[in-house]
Design a binder for these strands. Structure first.
Length: 567
RNA sequence: UGGGGCGUAGCCAAGUGGUUAAGGCACCGGGUUUUGAUCCCGGCAUUCCUAGGUUCGACUCCUAGCGCCCCAGCCA
């Protein structure tokens, strides 16, 4: 791929435009962004959008030494754990990004943050407030009414300093006092009504241990951390737009040497799923899914286990664009991204998901013939393999109908079909269990002149179906994954629990699919296409050596199913 | 009813006073095909939330309205 090709005419999104202007105007010599997760959960596809944005911008401006920091926003020890720190690093790396030396923690700045707080107090811009949480809420006012000033608002600087130091030393109980910025209780922006910037929390921190019993709040911490790292553009989601005045206030009051620009963009929403950490956590805790990395979860670890590639996720993030409009991306776009990535590179294999036996009556018994099969019809460099063919095979149950319509290009009584890389066969009869109505065996005859699947007389056979040798094929479990929810917007309906819309078919377990022998050795995690059905990979949790368990990543597009759906 | 945002096709999204209003997804036709896949070709907004106004000319500027999202954690 020519790098130039990528750049051609792809219009810059509004954030990249700002970055480019700042470089051109000389406002900045380089660009420094950051991805700032809180280590309190697993990353999901929504985070991928932010990761691709922040690391993407750094990558695009590599020539000017641009970089992107990974910074953990760990200011709330009651929710954060070191296991998340590890999983987040894994996921970012897996997506293909590298923060180099620039791994930071907001907790690294606790000392400096504390100094800045003292400075604010000395400037008369912050005060210790003894109001309880409830009282603070009551004093804050409402959306339409201004707040009231705290009775502690006008304490002397000396008293504030003393109290803050005693807070720091652990002299007061959790929740008994806070440090607040002194701004404006009548501001129409609630965030500016003397926001809390430090609270007492006698909780051990995953990195600083028991050193602190007060912890800084997000608004106060984030802007200063950005500043300390020399971030040029601080990119966050829309809900922080109202916080920007506070971000700017802290940096302005403290007269810091640099002042990063916060820019907000719309978070990712996808149809047929939920994205909030709370809801994902609920699905895990209440066992609706098998853990954070359940292949149906749109966590990065779930997608990875499902068989999605980092390339496809990055491509997806580029496709969806960047804007300030709250929007819903169709799940089909994500599915399209993985199909597009896998189509050129996934080897083709054969696996019969719902097997029914097919016997070729005129084929010699006890004979196994090796048939040559392309690993990729469009890419001969991927080579070929030998497929064992015999008198008894399995084919897909859906590929046979007792009384098929005209447009059905597969097997039916008297119909001829091509067994891919095998022979042309014609159905002569079939056996049926009269009590269940289930087809038990299909009998065919084959045309020995059609080895490989081509007819020397040039006759047209419209249908080609896949098959597996009954004798040489392997028995394997397959997990057919589908969208987790049946509703386009599972959490849109007020008063209806989103779990009502869980898709009962999101995981269909097939214990006895039949796969071609080579599939026994498929390396877990490696993606292949099962011809005519979809892209799959061997699950790296459940598979054992020589005994793969397959995950369906995504189906192939199926215009026949669509056609049937119409009638 | 306070404040902050946002409205271009079914879903995303370019467009920054003069273009036939990009592109992708979806959808609908057709072609190629030993995967009903892929690929290829074609179609898909006389109109940009609405109504006025400015202008020779408006998706772009102005005014008024309508709709949707976010904000009252000692969460981030």
């Amino acid at each position: 791929m020519e790098p130039q090709e990528h750049l051609e005419e792809k219009p810059l999104d509004f954030i990249r435009q700002i970055v480019a202007e700042d470089l051109q105007s000389g406002k900045h010599k380089t660009t420094i962004t950051r991805f700032p997760p809180e280590p309190n959960g697993f990353l999901h596809i929504g985070h991928a959008k932010s990761i691709c944005l922040n690391f993407g911008i750094a990558e695009e401006n590599k020539a000017r030494n641009a970089r992107c920091h990974l910074r953990f926003d760990d200011t709330n020890p009651s929710k954060e754990e070191t296991v998340y720190v590890q999983s987040i690093q894994n996921d970012v790396k897996w997506l293909g990004y590298d923060w180099g030396e620039n791994l930071f923690f907001a907790s690294d700045y606790f000392d400096q943050l504390h100094e800045f707080a003292i400075q604010l107090i000395k400037m008369g811009k912050a005060y210790v407030c003894d109001l309880s949480a409830d009282e603070i809420r009551n004093y804050r006012g409402t959306l339409t009414e201004p707040g009231k000033e705290s009775p502690y608002r006008n304490r002397s600087i000396e008293e504030n300093l003393d109290l803050f130091l005693r807070m720091t030393n652990g002299e007061f109980a959790d929740g008994s006092r806070v440090l607040r910025a002194k701004i404006d209780m009548a501001s129409p922006n609630l965030n500016m009504r003397d926001p809390v910037i430090y609270r007492i929390m006698k909780t051990d921190h995953h990195r600083t241990g028991d050193k602190w019993c007060i912890y800084p709040m997000y608004d106060y911490t984030h802007c200063l951390s950005d500043m300390l790292e020399g971030i040029t553009h601080s990119l966050c989601t829309l809900e922080f737009e109202d916080h920007r005045p506070l971000y700017d206030w802290v940096l302005d009051e403290l007269e810091t040497p640099c002042h990063p620009r916060q820019i907000e963009f719309a978070r990712l929403n996808l149809t047929y799923t939920v994205m909030s950490k709370r809801k994902l956590l609920q699905l895990v805790n209440e066992k609706y899914v098998d853990g954070w990395d359940d292949p149906r979860m749109l966590t990065i670890s779930g997608l990875r286990r499902r068989g999605y590639t980092p390339e496809s996720i990055r491509d997806f993030c580029q496709t969806i664009g960047m804007g300030k409009k709250s929007s819903w991306i169709d799940m089909g776009v994500l599915e399209k991204a993985i199909r597009d990535d896998l189509d050129p590179k996934a080897p083709r294999m054969m696996c019969v998901l719902n097997p029914v036996k097919l016997i070729i009556d005129n084929y010699p018994e006890g004979t196994i013939e090796m048939m040559e099969a392309q690993n990729h019809p469009k890419n001969p460099e991927m080579g070929s393999r030998q497929l064992p063919f015999g008198r008894e095979l399995y084919i897909e149950r859906d590929d046979f109908m007792e009384d098929p319509p005209k447009k059905f290009h597969r097997l039916g009584p008297g119909r001829e079909v091509r067994l891919r890389y095998g022979y042309l066969v014609t159905c002569v009869s079939y056996d049926k269990d009269e009590t269940t109505g289930e087809i038990t065996t299909i009998h065919c005859t084959y045309d020995p002149a059609t080895k490989g699947g081509s007819a020397p007389d040039g006759r047209k056979v419209k249908g080609t179906i896949h098959w597996v040798s009954a004798e040489k094929g392997i028995d394997c479990p397959v997990r057919l994954y589908d969208r987790l929810f049946t509703a386009e917007f599972p959490d849109a309906e007020k008063g209806v629990d989103f779990k009502e819309y869980l898709n009962p078919q999101s995981k269909v377990v097939l214990e006895h699919a039949k796969a071609e022998p080579a599939l026994a050795e498929l390396e877990p995690g490696k993606q292949v296409q099962f011809e005519r059905t979809g892209y799959f990979c061997a699950d790296y949790v459940e598979s054992e050596t020589g005994k793969p368990v397959f995950n369906r990543i995504v189906t192939l597009r199926d215009s026949w199913a669509k056609e049937q759906g119409k009638s």
